[in-house]
């Protein structure tokens, strides 16, 4: 841990203005440069630089042996990652869109997640699956999905969803350096959001949440693109004298039960916000953890503001499907008035 902190201090850079897509690109550059075993591959990640340009320039800089295009077959991409890992590589495959992870579910769930277990540690899977995720860009069907509950429910996988460029950078370093398989869910809606960021080495252990905005009256719990939405809600609520804390879970597995409990024990109220459908979503896990850890401190039941139990809808309907600022504000009101 001391070593981590020292490395973090040494590697800190002055603030630069970057989008999340650029920040992840910077992290991949660092990883490719520091570890000759890191390989970046997937559909269109080479000359094109990925459909979101996250791998822009990487093939040029590191060559087509380290950064390469594959044919279009998600299951084989993940199966290939397994074989590469068994041959000592550290694969960072991309599946182009979240909905295209479904064709690869067998490899992800039956193979990647279980190989270390099946082989009793003889075949570790230091694979980071980069998965552009969630909605908010009014994309065609299968180009906006929320698979986090599926992955978090799968023994052997770790799952992370960054919410801003700086965190995306650190979390990517952490994910790829981890010897466990990590599903790294990149919120597409936040890719182009530019802000001054300090590129930091990871300093918190895997599975640590962070308080994005401290507050006293209720905790908004979110991840990915919904974190920014919750910050907007908190700013609006502040105008009415309501002081909301925003907790970015970041890691959806392992999920930071302690950080969650510490926040909600203080504020006594929690609203969990996610894009995925309500039923059996991670909001239920958050609600259960809050109940287990904070039952006596709670002033109101946990509120869930989520997508509806319908498929991600087409363009004009998507804003009505995703949790709106108004819906979150209403949930805040319900919890405060309970």
């Amino acid at each position: 841990m001391t070593e981590l902190i020292e490395r973090a201090a040494a590697a800190d850079t002055p603030a630069v203005e970057l989008s999340m897509q650029q920040a992840i690109n910077r992290a991949l550059r660092v990883l490719l440069a520091e570890d000759p075993d890191v390989l970046v591959f997937g559909e269109d990640v080479g000359a094109l630089g990925g459909v979101f340009r996250v791998t822009d320039g990487l093939q040029e800089e590191f060559g087509d042996k380290r950064v390469f295009d594959t044919p279009l077959a998600e299951s084989a991409i993940m199966g290939m990652a397994v074989g590469l890992a068994m041959n000592g590589w550290r694969p960072v495959p991309e599946l182009q869109f979240d909905g295209f992870a479904y064709p690869a579910i067998d490899q992800i769930v039956n193979q990647v997640a279980r190989m270390n277990y099946r082989t009793r540690g003889a075949a570790p899977m230091p694979i980071t699956l980069r998965l552009p995720s969630f909605g908010g860009i009014q994309a065609p069907e299968h180009h906006g999905e929320s698979l986090e509950a599926l992955f978090a429910h799968t023994p052997g996988l770790k799952v992370v969803a960054p919410s801003d460029p700086g965190d995306a950078y650190s979390l990517m370093l952490q994910a790829v350096r981890s010897d466990d398989p990590v599903v790294y869910m990149e919120p597409k809606a936040r890719y182009w959001d530019r802000r001054p960021v300090r590129l930091r080495e990871p300093s918190d252990p895997i599975g640590t949440s962070r308080i994005v905005r401290p507050g006293r009256h209720a905790t908004l719990v979110a991840w990915g693109a919904m974190v920014q939405r919750c910050v907007q809600v908190a700013e609006l609520a502040a105008e009415d004298g309501v002081d909301l804390e925003v907790l970015d879970l970041r890691w959806l597995k392992p999920l930071d039960a302690e950080g969650l409990a510490a926040s909600v024990s203080r504020t006594r109220r929690a609203v969990v916000v996610h894009e995925a459908p309500l039923t059996a979503g991670l909001g239920a896990e958050v609600a259960a953890l809050v109940t287990e850890h904070c039952f006596r401190d709670l002033s109101a039941p946990v509120q869930r503001v989520t997508g509806f139990d319908v498929p991600y809808p087409a363009g004009p309907l998507e804003p009505q499907y995703l949790p709106t600022i108004d819906r979150v504000l209403l949930a805040v009101q319900r919890t405060l008035e309970y």
Partner: peptide, 8 residues
């Protein structure tokens, strides 16, 4: 053997 780095 679920994880190399175990979780809490």
């Amino acid at each position: 053997h679920v994880f190399r780095e175990n979780t809490k």
